Amino acid sequence: MGVQVFRTAMAVVFLGIFAGSAYAYLDPGTGSMILQVLLGGIAGLLLAGKLYWHKFLSRFGFEKDPDCALAANQQSETRPDAPSRP
């Protein structure tokens, strides 16, 4: 798979180098849309990284698993002998 990705990337680079002038116009709306897509992608990657980082830490015991803590908290709330909250 790595060889195929490399070949595809090199094909894109060579097409970019040897392509002629397009004489295209990008208006401000197009630039704004490109910027919005880039910033949204970065935000999505950061959020996914944060979620998987916590799962990674909880798997190796560095941090409590939030799902287990939530389940324990819900279980203590449903017990009849649990102290009531003010």
Score class of each variant (00 low, 15 high):
Met1Tyr: 05
Tyr25Ser: 02
Lys64Leu: 09
Glu63Lys: 10
Ala72Tyr: 01
Tyr23Trp: 06
Ala24Leu: 05
Trp53His: 14
Met33Trp: 14
Arg85Trp: 15
Gly16Gln: 02
Leu51Val: 12
Thr30Asn: 10
Tyr25Gly: 00
Phe62Lys: 12
Val37Cys: 05
Leu46Met: 06
Leu35Asn: 14
Phe14Lys: 11
Gln74Leu: 12
His54Phe: 09
Val13Asn: 02
Lys50Thr: 03
Ser58Lys: 03
Ala19Pro: 06
Val3Asp: 15
Gly44Trp: 04
Phe56Val: 02
Phe62Trp: 15
Ser84Pro: 14
Leu51Ala: 08
Thr30Tyr: 13
Ser58Ile: 00
Ala69Trp: 07
Gly40Thr: 07
Ile17Arg: 05
Gln74Trp: 10
Gly49Asn: 09
Leu26Cys: 08
Gln74Ala: 10
Pro28Arg: 02
Ala24Tyr: 01
Gly61Ala: 01
Arg79Leu: 15
Leu45Met: 13
Phe6Ser: 07
Gln4Gly: 05
Ala24Ser: 07
Met10Phe: 10
Thr78Phe: 11
Asn73Asp: 15
Ala82Lys: 03
Leu35Gly: 11
Ala19Glu: 13
Pro66Thr: 00
Pro83Ala: 02
Lys55Ile: 00
Pro28His: 00
Leu57Ala: 05
Phe18Pro: 02
Ala19Val: 00
Gly41Val: 03
Gly44Met: 02
Gly29Glu: 12
Phe6Gln: 06
Phe14Leu: 11
Ser32Trp: 09
Ser84Met: 10
Ala24Trp: 01
Gly40Cys: 07
Gly40Asn: 13
Ile34Asn: 07
Ala11Ser: 05
Cys68Asn: 12
Pro66Asp: 05
Glu63Ile: 02
Glu77His: 03
Gln74Val: 04
Leu15Phe: 06
Ile17Phe: 03
Gly16Val: 01
Tyr25Phe: 01
His54Gln: 13
Phe14Asn: 09
Ala72Cys: 03
Gly29His: 07
Leu70Ile: 09
His54Leu: 03
Pro86Asp: 08
Ala43Asn: 12
Leu57Gly: 03
Arg85Thr: 11
Lys50His: 13
Ala82Gly: 08
Met1Ser: 10
Gly29Val: 01
Arg79His: 14
Phe56Pro: 05
Gly31Trp: 15
Trp53Met: 10
Leu47Met: 06
Leu26Ala: 11
Ala72Lys: 09
Ile42Thr: 06
Arg79Trp: 10
Trp53Glu: 12
Leu46Ile: 03
Ile17Lys: 05
Thr30Met: 12
Cys68Lys: 11
Ala82Ser: 14
Lys50Pro: 01
Val12Asp: 10
Leu45Gly: 15
Pro66Phe: 00
Val3Arg: 09
Val37Asn: 07
Ile34Arg: 06
Leu38Lys: 12
Pro80Asp: 14
Asp67Thr: 01
Val37Ala: 04
Ser32Tyr: 08
Met33Gln: 15
Pro86Ala: 00
Val12Glu: 10
Pro83Val: 00
Leu35Val: 08
Ser76Lys: 07
Pro28Cys: 00
Glu77Tyr: 06
Met1Cys: 05
Ala43Asp: 15
Gly40Tyr: 04
Ala71Trp: 07
Phe6Tyr: 05
Phe56Arg: 10
Arg7Thr: 14
Gly41Ser: 11
Ala72His: 08
Leu46Asn: 09
Ala19Thr: 05
Asp67Arg: 09
Leu39Met: 07
Ala71Phe: 05
Ala43Trp: 07
Ser76Thr: 06
Gln4Met: 08
Gln36Gly: 12
Gly61Gln: 02
Leu15Asn: 15
